[in-house]
């Protein structure tokens, strides 16, 4: 359909509302045995905009007044194992859990990073791997494959709601495929 002045818009930023963030963070560090430690954290965060004017809700249907802000997961967590020898060898693996309502428009997922390093004197050499097992990895965004992103009253619900999963057209994003990092550090 040909654009009209009623269709076209600028994207911009407003001071238009309040926001309330509430959360609980639980974390632990556990020494399993000599040189080996486990650490974990679990984060629950409620994040909501409060008092968004109606005209902004009308024009930005993914803004929810009082609902969880789109793109901020309610639950996230991390867990990691670290091994540190006094000789200078170190290794660790870290996993991250990302709950629903994430900015990738995906169902909950997790990914892991790992690294090993050896320090000798003033020289340290490390090898890191990002996204060790290719979790949620994809080359392109997949339009229509994303999870349903909640809309306010003025969204699709005002017109009877979507009639197919494709209609909302949510794009599912992914993480990069496995990447390797080789780093060398020399202390002067």
């Amino acid at each position: 359909m040909n654009p009209t002045v009623n269709n076209l818009a600028f994207s911009t930023t407003f001071n238009a509302a309040g926001a309330r963030y509430r959360g609980i963070v639980l974390s632990a560090n556990v020494g399993i045995m000599r040189d080996l430690a486990f650490n974990a954290s679990y984060n629950i965060q409620s994040a909501a905009y409060i008092g968004i004017p109606q005209d902004i809700l009308l024009q930005n249907t993914n803004l929810l007044d009082g609902g969880q802000i789109t793109g901020i997961p309610l639950r996230q967590g991390t867990a990691g194992l670290s091994y540190q020898q006094r000789s200078g060898f170190a290794a660790r693996i870290d996993t991250t859990y990302v709950g629903s309502n994430n900015s990738w428009n995906r169902n909950p997922f997790w990914f892991a990073n790992a690294s090993v390093s050896q320090t000798s004197g003033r020289v340290s050499v490390g090898l890191g791997v990002y996204n060790l097992v290719n979790s949620a990895a994809q080359q392109y965004g997949l339009i229509g494959a994303g999870v349903f992103v909640p809309q306010n009253y003025y969204g699709g619900g005002a017109f009877g709601g979507p009639t197919s999963a494709i209609q909302p057209g949510t794009e599912e994003y992914g993480l990069p495929f496995r990447q390797y990092w080789l780093t060398t550090k020399v202390s002067i």
Binding site: A9, T13, R20
Partner: peptide, 15 residues
């Protein structure tokens, strides 16, 4: 924790 934010910056469209 709890944080109350005022003058929150929102991204959106204006005609």
């Amino acid at each position: 924790y709890q944080s109350w934010e005022n003058q929150a910056l929102l991204s959106g469209n204006v005609p």
